[in-house]
Amino acid sequence: MVDVSPNKKENEGISPLDSLIKLSGGPQDGGICLKEHRHTGKLVLRGNPNDSRFTKLVYRVLGNKLPLTPNTFVQNKQQTTIWLGPDEWLINCFPGDESTIENNLNNSLSKISNSVTNVSDNSTIIQISGSKARTVIMKGCSIDIHPRTFQPGQAVQSNLALALIVLWQIDQKPTYNILVRSSFSSYLWQWLLDAGAEFGIHIEK
């Protein structure tokens, strides 16, 4: 198992999936490709979207509008902002960027009721792509992810094989990102390996 040392520096770069992803590779023409986005910065932002000062100031910091439509996300070069609730968003950014964004948000929103919480270590992101990615997710998720109802730009919170996830589609390949609690990640990774075995799995490091 992964070494859980209290020393943060020693722990840098360790993910709960490390012991499972030792073996990378597999058929390039497999139906699915799995990859972990390790240690991305994650912030939960809360505030009142009906307050135009809030949305304007957030726009100034993030460089994109907050997604106000349920089940959607907005992506730019720096970060992805996902709708989690009518007054709640998840900001997913590059590893290490989270403190800067958190400080910028705190500074510019200091006079407005809001909350910014760093939840980076709470969860990890598994990327699943390939021609059979949709079929594999459909094995464990009750959400209709057929292209006629689920397109790039959409995000849902639901269950995947009983694990609580946030699922969002990046492109038409299709590529999906699955945000899952760190403690559930090894379970979900093994479930994905099992569900995708019949199609051939390529694991990217």
């Binding site: 349920p70 089940n71 609730g85 009518p86 009750s142 959400i143 269950n159």
Partner: peptide, 10 residues
């Protein structure tokens, strides 16, 4: 009211 139709397990 926000997310639309979902299974009752959610």
């Amino acid at each position: 009211p926000w997310c639309g139709f979902r299974d009752d397990e959610e």
